[in-house]
Each structure stands twice: as structure tokens, then as C-alpha cells.
Computed example of a mutant assay.
Amino acid sequence: MSPDPLVFLVCHGSRDPDYQQALADLLARVQQQLAPQPVELAQLEGQPLTLAEQIQGRLAAWLGAGRSPDQVVLLS
């Protein structure tokens, strides 16, 4: 199996429910466009983890599952 990139949709972030719904809709559209490549969500604000910690956590999860991404791609 060839390695896949680890793709993140990076957004500013907000606790506002309308923003969160719009973000969920955007993420769904991006995932549809890039399918079957999975797309992760990372937010700069409103999250307990920093952007770097979010990326490190997902990367660790991929490596723990035996996946080795060939690159990390940030979409903003």
C-alpha cells in the first residue's frame, strides 16, 4: 500500500453553533471532493489543543494504526 498524505482542513474556529454547522458543511464538501482521501479538521481557536498538538495527535494515531503518511497537507 502506498502512503497517503495526512490532509487537514484548517479553520479559525469558533464556539458559535452557526459557525460550527457551516464548518461541518464545508468539511463534508471537502471530504466529498477529495474522497477516498480522508480529511481531518483542525481549528486555531476554541479547541483545548493547539494546532500543532492537533496535527501531532492525528499523526500519532495514523502511525499507531500502521499508516505512514508521505506528507502533511494543510488546506485553509
Rank of each mutant, 00 (worst) to 15 (best):
63 L>R: 15
40 E>F: 10
75 L>D: 08
31 Q>D: 01
72 V>T: 15
63 L>N: 11
15 R>M: 02
29 R>H: 12
44 L>P: 02
60 A>C: 04
47 Q>R: 14
61 A>M: 09
11 C>T: 13
52 A>M: 07
8 F>G: 05
47 Q>N: 13
5 P>E: 00
27 L>H: 13
14 S>M: 01
44 L>A: 14
47 Q>S: 15
63 L>V: 11
36 P>K: 03
49 L>F: 12
23 L>K: 08
37 Q>G: 04
12 H>W: 02
30 V>Q: 09
3 P>K: 03
7 V>P: 05
53 E>R: 14
14 S>K: 01
60 A>E: 14
5 P>A: 03
68 S>L: 13
29 R>Q: 14
52 A>H: 07
60 A>L: 13
50 T>A: 12
67 R>M: 08
26 L>Q: 14
18 D>R: 03
39 V>A: 10
54 Q>W: 08
16 D>F: 00
30 V>E: 09
5 P>N: 03
20 Q>S: 03
25 D>T: 10
55 I>M: 14
58 R>T: 13
3 P>A: 10
42 A>I: 08
56 Q>H: 13
63 L>Y: 13
42 A>E: 06
8 F>E: 00
16 D>V: 00
55 I>D: 00
52 A>C: 06
65 A>T: 00
66 G>H: 13
30 V>H: 07
12 H>T: 07
6 L>T: 00
47 Q>P: 01
20 Q>R: 15
37 Q>C: 08
46 G>L: 06
25 D>W: 04
53 E>A: 15
25 D>Y: 04
1 M>Y: 03
23 L>M: 10
25 D>L: 10
72 V>I: 15
11 C>R: 14
29 R>T: 09
24 A>R: 11
31 Q>P: 02
7 V>L: 03
43 Q>P: 03
65 A>Y: 09
42 A>G: 15
50 T>F: 06
76 S>L: 12
2 S>L: 07
66 G>D: 09
22 A>F: 02
23 L>V: 02
12 H>V: 06
29 R>F: 02
68 S>D: 12
23 L>F: 02
1 M>N: 01
23 L>R: 14
58 R>Q: 14
72 V>R: 13
73 V>F: 05
56 Q>D: 15
8 F>Y: 06
68 S>M: 12
2 S>G: 00
31 Q>T: 05
41 L>W: 09
62 W>R: 14
59 L>D: 03
67 R>H: 13
73 V>P: 06
75 L>Y: 11
51 L>Q: 08
60 A>T: 13
10 V>P: 00
28 A>M: 07
30 V>S: 05
5 P>L: 04
17 P>N: 02
61 A>C: 05
14 S>W: 01
12 H>D: 02
